[in-house]
Amino acid sequence: MNNNKKNMCARVKRPRKILNPPSIKGFKPYGIDSGVKASDSVNLLFEEYEALRLIDYDCLNHHQASVMMNVSRPTFTRIYAAALQKIAVAFVEARQISIEGGKIYFDSDWHQCNSCESYFSHPHKHIPIKECPLCGSEDISDFDLPVEESEIYINEDQCICPQCEFEQTHQSGKPCKEEVCPKCGHFMKRKGSPGRRGRKMQET
């Protein structure tokens, strides 16, 4: 029994279809106590954001929304419940919300032309596609993203050391300014941000 359990692996997570990523990266609380418990931020996944958007902004029901995201209805309900739970935690504990990560792919129908070997998207879904937009050939087929490529974890941010310019990938939920450079021991900052001059002057 025990041995059997060891050989079993978890069920593969189905990639969730997302229409659009949010235009912002997260939320910050404000007020006197806002910084007190802000030890780490709550990481709202893209799929949870999308679930919240479909249910509470577009006012769909769970079944419709689950079809939109290409998951089963019970799975959708779990994603939605997780979204509400995380937002409630952030509100009550005055934590930041960062929206990133999740096993998702973006919703665009990609097709392949077998004659000129090009790939093309089809933005107007209500019009059926008849031909390749480039060469006009009717020999087209659907192009599905392989699952490996759909596993998108969007976190392209880099932490950079202002002293020796050492770079490392930013860890979500961990502020760069609390990260210490492994080379020279200086506090890091987010790459591309102006940084905090006050902090720098204090130390030097």
């Binding site: 000129c116 090009s118 998207s121 933005p123």
Partner: peptide
């Protein structure tokens, strides 16, 4: 995608 522009990849 959100602006409904068609993309063609060669």
């Amino acid at each position: 995608d959100s602006m409904h522009i068609q993309m063609v990849v060669i």
